[in-house]
């Protein structure tokens, strides 16, 4: 039932077409498809597919970003209806994200944010040049499961260590997990500063966030 609709939804994500995805989401509601079903049977398989293709080198980063955007557009249409029905998409976890103090690079961090939210995480994106304490405050406020700290420069990656220390000071660890990323960041560095996870790209960040929360 509704196979054709689900295929079109899947394709709109693969094509990275937010407007089309949002139209299809509205149409799904008109057709009486449950919003959760539209997400799980229609849109999510598209994102899964494009993620695999990206890992294989078949699609490029902008394709992945736009797939994420299309996913967000579809969810934005479906979410109010889910609330009305008292259902909700399973939230895999709450993630506070930001680029560390002194660093204004945002593309990588935003990409991680897009893919995490497209994958079902609730993301609180603090933006760039974020003071160390702000990470801890926000994590406490929203009862975050994960804090993600981005740094592009070797000079600013020290700030990732400071964020870990701040979370310790606030007594949020080890309940709150820390993941770090950015061009100069390595697994060794992550271990050295006591972070819980490191991903070399945005897809890896999603996989690590899932595994830290056993999802």
């Amino acid at each position: 039932m509704h196979e054709e609709q689900f295929n079109a939804m899947r394709q709109s994500i693969v094509d990275g077409a937010p407007e089309h995805a949002s139209e299809l989401a509205s149409k799904a509601l008109e057709l009486g498809i449950a919003p959760l079903e539209a997400i799980n049977k229609g849109f999510v398989p598209g994102l899964t597919h494009i993620g695999e293709q990206f890992r294989l080198g078949e699609v490029f980063l902008p394709d992945l970003v736009m797939a994420g955007e299309a996913m967000k557009a579809a969810v934005a249409v479906l979410e109010p209806e889910m609330q009305k029905r008292g259902t909700q998409r399973e939230i895999l976890g709450k993630v506070v994200l930001g680029t560390v103090k002194g660093d204004i690079h945002e593309i990588g961090k935003t990409l991680v944010s897009t893919l995490l939210s497209a994958s079902g995480f609730q993301v609180f994106d603090l933006g760039v040049d974020v003071p160390v304490e702000r990470f801890a405050e926000k994590a406490r406020e929203v009862q975050a499961d994960i804090v993600g700290v981005s740094a592009l420069l070797t000079t600013t990656m020290q700030g990732q260590k400071s964020v870990v220390e701040a979370l310790d000071r606030h007594g949020l660890r080890p309940k709150v997990k820390v993941i770090v990323g950015g061009a100069p960041v390595t697994r060794d560095w992550a271990e050295k500063i006591g972070a819980d996870g490191y991903g070399q790209d945005a897809m890896a960040a999603v996989a690590i966030a899932r595994s830290l929360l056993h999802k």
């Binding site: 490029f60 902008p62 970003v65 736009m66």
Partner: peptide, 14 residues
Amino acid sequence: GQFLKLPHTRRHMR
């Protein structure tokens, strides 16, 4: 802004 999400980027990147 940045150029990652632009149709122009996807049109020419390959």
